[in-house]
Amino acid sequence: MSVRKQASSESAPRRLAATTPAAEARRGRGATANPAGRFEASRREAFDDGWEPGEVPPRRTEVSPERTRRILTRNDSPDIPFDRSINPYRGCEHGCVYCFARPNHAYVGLSPGLDFETRLFTKPDAARLLARELSAPGYSPRTIALATATDPYQPIEREHRLTRALLAVLARFRHPVGIVTKSNLVTRDIDLLAEMARDRLVKVAVSITTLDPVLARRMEPRAPHPRKRLEAIRALSQAGIPVMVIVAPVIPALNDHEIEAILAAARAQGAGEANHVLLRLPHELDALVSDWFAEHYPGRREHAFALVRQARGGKAYDAAFGRRMVGEGAYAELIAQRMRLAKARLGYAAARVTLNTEAFAPPGAQLALF
């Protein structure tokens, strides 16, 4: 299989079939294509030139270090409950086809498709940078979100242990943190998390998209089985760690019928809070998810995207604050109403757990008193 370049054009049709590697090459991956990012000056088209007959080996995961001067990312978004976050990794091996962070890979000249889940970056200085930033004069503590663009407990965390190192720093500084993950690897760190939870310094949100293992394998091929995530909720809850379940993303005509079942299963394992996010399709993700539907659920594609557009003001995506997470209109309100009713019936908390910022104490701060 060879690759040839084509000049990029704003008016060129988005034909992902031209960037779809052979099925063997993407075995075990979520994306069905590897289109060029939106900033690239050319596009690549795969074609068979006859020089590489036979079976194509699967794509391997490549991991590279990324040096950065800061680790805390700030935001002023009014519709999310945090103003700072940490992402110890760029890209995510879980391979969730719907991941709204996929378009971020275009900023480093890579594809939001298969590159996002196979060409990963670590930030090896993350813990040192965090300690330095938390020690800065005048630093004011507020909950840090870990992580927002990639899963902090994706498979490469087993080897690199950057999330574990960051939690150790946060525990030492007695700094509040909210964790979002779909991996049961989070239970490895229960020793740190339980200690922090005693001082209201941590909350964990576990994302469950579906209870159907076949659908889960197609949508998020390297994420843990839904059963493992439920087991993680139970283990965290039993250790005294507040747990939220996030039904995310809600995908029309695919998993939206499972909302109540997911909430019931998570509540039975000890989840105390619940939330949901409607499918988000920024930038290249629109075409990537459409391509995935065409391969796996072609008969549902038009219906699914019609409902998405209905909830996004007639577009594939609406980035406006207040609407980007849950959408608007009849379909979005129906989903929100179902969430409200199910949460009330199952006994989920109406208010979110508020983490403690008063305990913050940089190591050595007491020495300044002498």
Rank of each mutant, 00 (worst) to 15 (best):
A31G: 03
A33T: 06
P35Q: 03
A36Y: 11
G37H: 08
G37K: 05
R38W: 09
A41P: 01
A41M: 10
R43E: 15
R43A: 14
R44V: 07
E45P: 04
F47R: 09
D48Y: 09
D49N: 14
D49P: 05
D49V: 04
G50M: 06
W51I: 04
E52C: 01
P53S: 05
G54C: 07
G54I: 08
E55V: 11
E55W: 10
V56F: 00
V56N: 00
P57R: 11
P57E: 12
P58D: 14
P58H: 14
R59P: 00
R59C: 01
R59L: 12
R60L: 13
R60Y: 04
T61N: 09
E62Q: 13
V63W: 11
S64W: 13
S64E: 15
S64C: 09
P65V: 15
E66F: 10
R67I: 12
I71L: 12
T73Q: 02
T73D: 01
T73M: 00
T73K: 00
N75S: 10
N75C: 10
N75F: 02
S77R: 05
P78D: 15
P81H: 06
F82V: 03
F82G: 01
F82K: 00
D83H: 13
R84H: 05
R84E: 12
R84Y: 04
S85H: 12
I86N: 01
I86A: 03
I86D: 02
N87K: 08
N87D: 14
P88C: 01
P88T: 02
R90Y: 08
R90V: 07
R90L: 11
R90F: 13
G91W: 03
C92V: 02
C92Y: 08
C92P: 04
E93T: 01
H94Y: 15
H94M: 13
G95L: 02
G95E: 03
G95Y: 03
G95A: 03
C96H: 07
C96N: 05
C96S: 06
C99Q: 04
F100Y: 13
A101V: 03
A101Q: 02
P103D: 13
N104A: 06
H105D: 07
A106I: 04
A106P: 04
V108T: 08
